[in-house]
Design a protein around this nucleic acid. Structure first.
Lengths: 247, 247
DNA sequence: TCTTATTAATTGGTTGACCAATTTATGTAT
DNA sequence: ATACATAAATTGGTCAACCAATTAATAAGA
């Protein structure tokens, strides 16, 4: 069984990835400085021996990350942003490469506690109604079944909306897919935790309603640390299993 | 002059954007549920009356966001992630649509203060060396010129690395481009702030070195709130000017 | 009738050619 | 010699055709 551990993860490096790496290499090595024009796509695909689609895909991907900027009928240039962001961009940024569940949960706690604090500060009456509706949906679903992950997250998302911080909300959305994939694998979802989760949600809502910033923060922290503790009780084996299967 | 204000920003909606919106509409309206297969690309581009490249680009973009998943030679399906995340996904998530600079800076403060705290807790000797090197580079550049944004951000990035939280670091990288574009427009960069920034950096480093979690947090918060205060002194007119010109 | 092999259709992946806009080069007139 | 107009080349954007792998359908055998 442990013979499996002797196998190394095979990195499937698509043509696009290879091109991206080469371009990044050129930038990090200083051969391409911000403002410089990239060789035209045709020259690139000829030099690299691949189709132009691949080159275009690579450029488009780097454009997403704000590293390149393509000017139609003019060329592709390295965006202003210097090597700074590139430095840590060893692998794809957004496909977060969540190798460690700890970082993920830790970050979630940071985002959500602050969202709760801001929500307690900025929430409107409409926000309260939205949060309550989400909580109600969660309660009903939970009464019927044990599986209410979507409704759970919706509750948290409504709080993020009430924070009136669009960026914070966007970042929560960014990590949500990873949270979900990890939870779907890890969370047994039929444990004793479920009962207390509802009460904790209600406590959070109460503090937000009362505009009690500190209270909302602590309630959210307690809620999430419960989840964190629960995750930590899982076997390491289970955790390892949850990796590696992505893409 | 104020006649210009009567013009509405023209939204250049590329074919790709239109397709994305249609697909998102299908998902949010429930006509496409997670796990469902999308119509094949050929049918789609026929129904939409556009080239297949556009459809493929749209799919690829949505795949970035984790909304779709294309299985080669099999089809494209809606990823597991329920409507939950879609709910708030009115516009592109990652091109953060930073309409409000406040949210951006606010979020940056949240991320960075926590990164500083974690760095004070987890930093190794190598991390310290890296942070010091970045600080030195910043100092040198600053002595030579007033423009050292890259080196400044590198210092912050090294701290994020020292936090040993990969997700947190990734999220900082995500918002960094937006920070830069906004700063490049807003920051006069030749003001009195520059002198104190260096001292503040040194103070942060000191606390991280001493493993003083609370101290590092406060030092970082003070550092960033200075920047925030400075930004707030800018004219609203300048702020508005900084919007709308992106892409 | 059920299983299995073979074939046909459909899928996303890839390529090369074409298009319009831009930039550069060239030639002519001043 | 310089300025300007015109033409040629280069650019990214777009599209349609082709490819290999997968899947579905069908037919043959037990």
């Amino acid at each position: 069984m442990e013979l499996l551990n002797n196998f190394k993860q095979i990195v499937i490096e698509t043509p696009v990835d290879k091109i991206i790496n080469q371009i990044k290499e050129l930038i990090t090595s200083g051969q391409l400085k911000p403002g410089d024009k990239l060789p035209p796509e045709r020259k690139l695909c000829e030099a690299l021996g691949v189709g132009r689609s691949h080159v275009r895909d690579a450029i488009k991907k780097l454009e997403f990350y704000g590293i390149l900027k393509t000017l139609p009928q003019s060329g592709t240039v390295v965006a202003g942003l210097g090597m700074t962001a590139l430095e840590g961009l060893i692998t794809d940024v957004l496909r977060l490469e969540v190798k460690d569940f700890r970082s993920l949960v830790e970050t979630r706690v940071i985002l959500e506690t602050n969202a709760a604090a801001l929500a307690a500060q900025n929430r409107t009456e409409e926000d309260l109604a939205g949060i309550e509706a989400a909580l109600l949906a969660y309660k009903n679903k939970k009464a019927a079944s044990v599986y209410a992950v979507d409704e759970d997250l919706m509750f948290h998302l409504k709080i993020a909306e009430a924070s009136k911080n669009s960026v914070l909300k966007s970042l929560m959305l960014v990590i949500t897919p990873d949270i979900l994939t990890n939870y779907n694998e890890l969370d047994a979802c039929g444990d004793g935790r479920s009962v207390s989760a509802l009460e904790e949600h209600e406590l959070i809502l109460f503090h937000i309603k009362e505009k009690n910033i500190e209270g909302a923060t602590q309630a959210m922290r307690a809620h999430l640390s419960d989840i964190l503790d629960f995750s930590n009780t899982l076997q390491v084996e289970d955790f390892n299993r949850s990796n590696g299967k992505k893409r």
